[in-house]
Amino acid sequence: MINIIMEDIDSALIAELRRNGRATVSELASNLGVARATVKTHMDRLLKSGDIVGFTVVTDKEPEAAALTGLITIALEGAAIERVVSQLRNHREITSIRTTHGVWDIIVEFGVSTVVDLDNVLAMIREQNGVTRTETSIYLRNRL
């Protein structure tokens, strides 16, 4: 059991949910060393504010659903970000789109069944006007 300062509850709660998005309020309270009512209040507020937008399930069988998962980092020129993000949202193989600050402008997570599907996703991204460079990393296994 961890003793948590009140200001840190949101961060600790989000970290616990990242480890186990299906944890019960009781389990979360026990792990954080706070009352169930405290967890419920913070979780409700985080959901209402949009700091938590959903929950997901991660399984050992993930490769069966998407044989290849990973991320693609994308560098852009000019003001292409909104247009490119808008196009990326239309592809079911793309599971997450994040804008960043640094060398890369966008980081995209993907899940595909075959190498050919990955090649098609990469071709689609590289065809977008304003994309100057991409780099792809394939996830091997989750070590959380």
Rank of each mutant, 00 (worst) to 15 (best):
L71D: 12
G78L: 08
I106M: 09
V39P: 09
D119M: 14
G54N: 12
V53L: 10
T59H: 02
I74Y: 00
V115R: 05
T136G: 05
L47Q: 07
V103K: 11
V34C: 11
T99N: 13
E62G: 07
R92W: 01
E64F: 15
A123P: 07
T134Q: 09
R133L: 14
E77N: 07
T38Q: 09
D51Y: 00
D44Q: 12
R89E: 11
E135M: 14
L122Q: 11
T134C: 10
T114L: 03
N31S: 14
V85Q: 00
G50K: 00
N90M: 07
G54M: 12
A80T: 08
I138A: 06
I125T: 03
T114A: 07
I125A: 02
Q87F: 04
R89W: 05
W104R: 08
R45F: 00
T100N: 12
I106D: 03
E27A: 12
T38N: 05
T56Y: 09
N90P: 01
R98W: 08
A35V: 11
L32F: 08
V25R: 00
V85R: 02
V112L: 08
A65P: 02
N120F: 09
G78I: 07
Q128I: 07
S30Q: 13
L28E: 10
M124Y: 09
I74V: 15
I97Q: 04
A29V: 03
A67M: 12
G50I: 11
L32E: 13
N90H: 06
T134L: 11
L68G: 02
I94C: 01
T56M: 08
E109A: 11
T24I: 03
E77C: 08
N31I: 10
E135N: 15
H91W: 05
N90C: 06
Q128C: 13
I81D: 06
I74F: 06
R36E: 14
E109Q: 12
N31H: 11
N31W: 01
A80K: 06
V53T: 15
S113C: 05
V115L: 10
T56S: 09
A123V: 07
E82L: 15
R133S: 09
G130V: 07
N120T: 05
V25T: 08
R45S: 04
F55K: 03
E64H: 13
F55A: 14
A80R: 04
R126H: 05
P63V: 13
A37I: 15
A35P: 04
T59N: 04
V115Q: 07
K61S: 15
L88Y: 03
D119E: 15
G102P: 06
I72C: 06
R133M: 11
H91M: 06
V25G: 01
G102S: 12
I81K: 02
E27V: 11
E127S: 14
V57W: 00
R89Q: 12
T95P: 08
E64D: 15
D60I: 10
L32G: 06
G102Y: 06
E64T: 15
T99I: 14
N129L: 10
I94W: 04
T56G: 13
L140G: 11
R36W: 00
V39G: 03
L88S: 00
S86F: 02
Q128E: 13
I74Q: 02
I107P: 08
A66P: 02
Y139E: 10
I94R: 01
V121P: 01
V115G: 04
Y139L: 10
E93V: 00
I74D: 06
